[in-house]
Design a binder for these strands. Structure first.
Lengths: 344, 344
DNA sequence: CTGAAAGCGCTTACAG
DNA sequence: CTGAAAGCGCTTACAG
C-alpha cells in the first residue's frame, strides 16, 4: 500500500527530486527530452502527487469549505452541486459540511476547515446569526455568505444572495396581473432579514396598485412544510376573503397545499397559490407550484467567483455584496380572476 | 494572515516543539503543569494544528472520500448526510464529490481523492459499471461500494446495499394482502443487478401465491420521473386489466402519478401504486406514496462502519457484503380490493 | 519529564 | 539545463 513518491521516480530516472518536481509542474527550465522521459516513468509507476505535501509547501490547498444546514434540503443540495461543479471548473475542490443549524457543530466545522487550511469558506445560510459567524472568521480566511443579504446593515462581510425585494415585487406584479386584489402573505418572519426584504418588495408593489395584503406571521424560527400546514389549517377554519396566497417559501406553500387538500379547497380554482424559492419539489407532478426562482446555479457561481477573487487578490479590506435577479416561474397553481388585466 | 504554528507556541512557552506537540496530542509523558500552561497559551494565541502537516507525518488524514452521482438526487442527498454525520461521530470527515455518472469525471475524482490521501473511499452508485471502478481502485486504498450488491457474482469488492430481493418480496406480499391478483411490474431493467434482484424477489413471492405479474421493461438506462411518465402514458392508452402497479423506483412511481392524473385515473381508487426507495418526495402532501424503504441512514452507517473497519484492520484480502433489510412504508397510494385477506 | 534530530513528500531559491 | 540544500508544520523515536 506504500505509494510511489517523487524520490522513487528520481531514482528510476537517474535524476534529482528537483528535476522530477519541475517536470511535473510544467516548468520551462528543463529539456523537453528529460521531461517526457520522466513523465513516462511517472505514468508507468502510477505516480500521483501527494496533495498534502504540495499544499504544505505552497500554502495553498485549492480546497474550498462549504457549510450548509443540511444537504437533504433541496435548496441547499442544488446550491452544493452548483458550488462543487463551478469550483471544480476553476481548479478548486470543495469540502461539504452539514451544520444542522447547530451553533456548536458550526463552530467545530469552521475549526475543522481552518485546520485543513482551506483557501476559503462559503457559508450557505439564511439565518441571521450567520453574520456573526462571518464576522468571527472572516479575519482568519476569505469567506462569503451565501443566501443572506448583508448590504443594508453595512456588515463587513462578503455576500451573495437573491434580490429578495425584487422577488417580492415580481410576486406582487404577477398576482395583480391575474386580477387578484385580495391577497394574503403567509409566513412573514420579522426576525429574518431575508423575509423582511421579501415582504417589503411585495408590499410596496401592491401598494402602488392600491392593494394592502393581509399578513399572517410565522411565529416559528423556520419555514418548513409542517409550519405551512399548521398556519393554513388555522386559516382555513375561518372565512376566506382572499383569492390568492403568496407563501414566503415553497416549503410553506407545500404545507398550504396539504391543508387545502384536507379542507377540500381547490388550488387554483378556489385560491391561487404562489411560492418562493423554486425547490425541485415544486415542479413535481401533482404539485406544479408557481413560484419565484432563486436561480441557484447563478447564486452558486457568483459565490464561488467572489470567493476565488478574494483568494487571488488577497484584498481583505473590501466587501462586496452581490445580488441576483430572481425570475418568475409560472406553473399551474395560480389562475386569473374575473378582473384580470390583459396586459400582464 | 500568517497562522500561528507550534514553533510560535514553543517560543512563547519557552519549551521545545516536541513538548508542545506532546501537550497537544495528550501524551502521558509530560508534567500536568507544563501541559496546562502550554494549552493555555495555545488558546490565547488561537493555535490550531495544521492538519496537512499532521497527516503527512502520520500518513493518516481522517478523511473519507464519498462519490455520488448527484447530491440533488434525494436518495443520494440522504445518503450523503448519513455518511457525513456518522463519519464525523467516528472522527472522520468526508469529501463529497458528484460524478454526474460521467466516467471521465469519476476517473478524475478517484485520482483527486487518492492524491489527497483520503483514508478510504465510498462509491455510492447503483450502476453496474461501479464494480469496475471498485476493482480498479480498491488495490490502491480501502473502498466500499454503496448501493449495489456484489455478492452474487463473487466480485472482490466490499459492498453495502439494501436486500433487494427481500424488498421485492415485501412489495409482493403487501399487494397480495390487499387482495390484488392482477399486478403490473413497471420499469424492469435487466441490465441492472439491483433491478434483477428486486424483480426476482417480487416475482417469486407472487409465484408462491400463484400470481404472475405483467412486466413492463424500461428500455432506458435510468429510472427518472420522466421515464415513469412516458412508460405509463403508453400503458394508460391501452385497456387496463390490472389493479396494482409496483414501480421499480419511487421516481418512476411519481411519473406514473403524473400520467394517471392526466388520464383521469385515480390513485388509489382505480389503481394502487407502490414504489421502491422511499425518497423524501414520496412523503410529500398530495403524493403520499406507499413504498419500500431502503433505510438510507442504516445503509450510510453500515458503509462507514465497514470502511473504517477495513482502514483500521489493514486487512486487504477479505471482502464483505452487507445487506440491509428493507421495510414497508404504507401511505395512501394503495387500497384493498374486494378479495383482500384479513390477515396481514 | 524534556529536547535535539530526523523525516513525512514536496517545492524553490541558489549555485553551478 | 540540473542538483544540493533548506524548509513547509508537524510527530516520534532516541538520548538524557
Amino acid at each position: 500500500m506504500r505509494r510511489v513518491t517523487i524520490k522513487d521516480i528520481a531514482r528510476i530516472a537517474g535524476v534529482s527530486c528537483s528535476t522530477v518536481s519541475r517536470a511535473l509542474s510544467g516548468s520551462t527550465e528543463l529539456s523537453e527530452s528529460t521531461r517526457s522521459r520522466i513523465l513516462q516513468i511517472c505514468r508507468e509507476e502510477g505516480y500521483r502527487v501527494n496533495a498534502l505535501a504540495r499544499s504544505l509547501i505552497c500554502s495553498k490547498t485549492n480546497v474550498l469549505g462549504l457549510i450548509v444546514p443540511e444537504v437533504t434540503n433541496p435548496f441547499y443540495s442544488e446550491l452544493s452541486l452548483g458550488v462543487e461543479t463551478h469550483a471544480r471548473s476553476l481548479g478548486y475542490n470543495v469540502m461539504l459540511c452539514n451544520s444542522l443549524n447547530d451553533p456548536k457543530i458550526t463552530e467545530e466545522l469552521f475549526g475543522f476547515l481552518l485546520s485543513h487550511q482551506v483557501d476559503g469558506i462559503i457559508l450557505a445560510s439564511s439565518r441571521n446569526d450567520s453574520i456573526h459567524w462571518m464576522q468571527q472568521y472572516s479575519a482568519a480566511l476569505p469567506a462569503v455568505l451565501l443566501g443572506t443579504a448583508t448590504a443594508e446593515n453595512g456588515a463587513e462581510v462578503n455576500s451573495v444572495s437573491v434580490d429578495n425585494q425584487a422577488g417580492g415585487r415580481l410576486a406582487a406584479e404577477y398576482l395583480l396581473s391575474l386580477g387578484h386584489r385580495d391577497i394574503l402573505y403567509l409566513g412573514y418572519r420579522p426576525s429574518s432579514i431575508t423575509h423582511r426584504l421579501r415582504f417589503s418588495g411585495f408590499a410596496e408593489a401592491l401598494q402602488r396598485a392600491g392593494v394592502q395584503p393581509i399578513v399572517v406571521e410565522n411565529p416559528a424560527d423556520a419555514s418548513s412544510i409542517t409550519h405551512g400546514y399548521e398556519l393554513s389549517r388555522q386559516l382555513f377554519t375561518k372565512p376566506i376573503h382572499y383569492t390568492a396566497i403568496f407563501a414566503a417559501t415553497d416549503s410553506l406553500a407545500l404545507g398550504v397545499m396539504q391543508a387545502a387538500d384536507e379542507c377540500h379547497i381547490s388550488i387554483p380554482d378556489d385560491i391561487s397559490l404562489l411560492g418562493f424559492d423554486n425547490i425541485i419539489y415544486s415542479s413535481l407532478p401533482k404539485i406544479t407550484l408557481s413560484t419565484v426562482d432563486q436561480r441557484k446555479p447563478l447564486l452558486a457561481q457568483a459565490a464561488v467567483n467572489l470567493l476565488t477573487n478574494i483568494i487571488d487578490s488577497s484584498e481583505r479590506d473590501e466587501f462586496t455584496h452581490r445580488l441576483i435577479r430572481p425570475t418568475l416561474i409560472t406553473r399551474s397553481s395560480c389562475r386569473e380572476t374575473g378582473n384580470a388585466s390583459k396586459t400582464q
